[in-house]
Design a binder for these strands. Structure first.
Lengths: 213, 213
DNA sequence: TTGCAAACATGAGGATTACTCACGTTTGGA
DNA sequence: TCCAAACGTGAGTAATCCTCATGTTTGCAA
């Protein structure tokens, strides 16, 4: 598993390149640093978060900040790690007892709701995982472009399924299109072979949805 | 359409805040700047692209660069715009003549292949649209986390559909999970009401896939 | 209790880099 | 031929991440 090895090394580089706090005092200070970072990200976004500001708000010096976090990304990483650990526990719990199709339907639906609520409620998660994060304007272009592309698909669907509410078709087309882009981004981020499989799976899934009654 | 107005203003801010080249000489120089930027992004990624390096490689001064591009993002934006215009034409052409379900199946499949090929072949597209772009390590954590989460789903599927090849189930679960994250990112980027509709549509789509025979 | 090594804390300053601006040069049309 | 507008330049500015030499505190072994 070279992926796992690469990740561990990345983790060491990002999260553990500095000494972990061993004394009570420093552990509290690290907590304050994380809290300050979290607040600043919630207020202005991680891109606008300044290391000096984090230190000031946490009531520590800039040097102390860098004693426990090797760089700016490490703070964001540390915050992200907390959320992922938390959400992983939640997922595990929700899906653990599922034994039939109906149960999966209920559990999955509930899980999506919880996740969506988390995304809506936590500015830090929104910021970290929202994609193309550094550039809000670029994100808007991406969405506008995606909408325009989906419109071509909507036009086809309107012809093929005239009985269905046009707004529903538009939502479907937009979603299918965005998922296609997500699938490709995913595909180019993994081994070529797995990427090909994922794209093929997306095709099936998208067509099933597009041609559904 | 306040979205459209906002986008135009963003476009003006990003792409047109500087004088457009009107003489033949400067038009050529702008082309050289874009070519240099494209090459550097392909080599090292947009984050590592230095404005000074772009100018040097294009054989112009840093001042000339800023005469036509208000900031670094504007160069990336300009490159992205070319690709989106190109791909939009391609999509329009592929879907224009579709009149029945079979035709949609063929055209859509072909379209996905072309898009995927574009993603694979063009380092600049990969870089610009690959998401969480600024931080490759964070992207890796995101994927590892997503894989771990999908594993819970895979376990359920193995129980529910023991006849199906486990590797296929794994691919399905991973894809469905990633698309869920994509759907939520999308949902929080648009108006709340549309976001809710998109998440609901994702739920239906995902469950249809998960419970498919 | 005391000595001491390791852990902790500090903030001025080094290094990098996006971006500006005052001044010089070229172009195209009247 | 003249001139205003467009173009071109690169040293310098400002902002920001991060280092490091130096001083302080802590916990523990003798």
């Amino acid at each position: 598993m070279e992926d796992a090895a690469a990740l561990v090394s990345a983790q060491e580089q990002l999260a553990s390149a500095r000494r972990a706090p061993s004394q009570q005092r420093s552990r509290e200070r690290v907590e304050r640093m994380l809290a300050a970072a979290s607040a600043l990200i919630a207020e202005q976004g991680s891109d606008a978060m300044r290391m000096g500001e984090v230190a000031e708000r946490a009531g520590v010096s800039i040097g102390s900040l860098y004693q426990f976090f090797p760089d700016k990304r490490a703070i964001i990483w540390a915050l992200a790690e907390r959320y992922t650990a938390e959400s992983q526990a939640c997922i595990s719990a929700a899906l653990a007892g599922v034994s039939d199709a109906e149960g999966l339907g209920r559990a999955f639906s509930e899980l999506v709701d919880i996740y969506y609520g988390l995304f809506l409620a936590e500015p830090v998660i929104r910021d970290i995982w929202s994609g193309t994060q550094a550039d809000k304007a670029l994100r808007q272009l991406e969405l506008a472009d995606s909408r325009a592309n989906a419109e071509f698909l909507t036009a086809v669907l309107r012809r093929l399924r005239p009985a269905v509410d046009p707004a529903t078709l538009e939502t479907t087309a937009f979603l299918v299109w965005q998922m296609g882009e997500a699938a490709m981004r995913l595909a180019i981020s993994v081994e070529r072979q797995e990427g090909d499989r994922l794209v093929a799976a997306y095709k099936r899934m998208a067509l099933r949805e597009l041609l559904a009654e």
